[in-house]
Design a protein around this nucleic acid. Sequence first.
DNA 1: CAGAAAGGTCAAAAAGAGTGACCTTGTTTC
DNA 2: GAAACAAGGTCACTCTTTTTGACCTTTCTG
Lengths: 152, 152
Amino acid sequence: MQLDEPDRRILRVIQERPGLTMRELGAATGLSHSPCWRRLQRLQQAGIVSEKRYIVDPEAAGFEIVVFCFLRMAEHRRDRLAAFEAAVERVPEVLQCYSLSGEHDYLLQVVARSVRDYEQTVKNALLELPDVQSINTSFTLKRIKDSRVIPV
Amino acid sequence: MQLDEPDRRILRVIQERPGLTMRELGAATGLSHSPCWRRLQRLQQAGIVSEKRYIVDPEAAGFEIVVFCFLRMAEHRRDRLAAFEAAVERVPEVLQCYSLSGEHDYLLQVVARSVRDYEQTVKNALLELPDVQSINTSFTLKRIKDSRVIPV
DNA sequence: CAGAAAGGTCAAAAAGAGTGACCTTGTTTC
DNA sequence: GAAACAAGGTCACTCTTTTTGACCTTTCTG
């Protein structure tokens, strides 16, 4: 879907100032509430904008440990990787998983309540994932930024 | 803030099923809407839960390129790092930034509309950040998972 | 057991979302 | 240039939810 300027303005405002009413959003983007609402609907149907939701802060919720880990796979056959990816999806402690170009196959962001818990997750969930050859963990010391604001 | 079981149930349900009304949320967590609402308020005031907001999908919004990059710093004095972190905060293409233990100092997630744009971001924004010594980029090939659901 | 803390119920006000009808304006197409 | 469209604007209104307040009941706790 092609975004025009009003669409981008809407995207900017809903990201920077959630909690505006449709009328306020319209005012902030130079539209009135009706067409503004119609556009937002369209953006949602196009999958560009999610439904409105709450975000839970891992740290505040007691998940003090955030790690990134790099996986290398033993097999690189398409069906094996698909199996791995489906399995990763089901591990709740894994928040993000991207496949990478370069020397590592996957990058995972994993949260845990403690180092001990992380250890358990690695042993019980991650190493059990199909075809994982090696796991290289980097602990995060500090979250400097964790934004979901796309600079549209 | 210490979370009890009803709190955790609320956190689980609002993450798994956004869009429930307060009454439905209450029903799903075994509370009635009033106390449920009061708890959710408390969780928000405690910073555990954000206000309700839309999430924009980078890919759907035209940001096809998602990269992770690893930075190494020239200086490790406290005030220099603070300056760097404040500067990173202001680069809109950087969605995430964590400081890491181990051989790299920082991990950044950066989005861009194209490889060419990414190149620009690196040259104009990232390399301009104070004390950056080296940048090591890993392009992502595929997003397997990008969840914000904390397994409370 | 007394009090405090939290939940339940009810009722109601206020706010916002979501619609629909219809008019106006700017553009594109013949 | 006229007709046909595509969008936006305005209005009026309905319906849901949220948000509150009052008050009673149940559960813990010291």
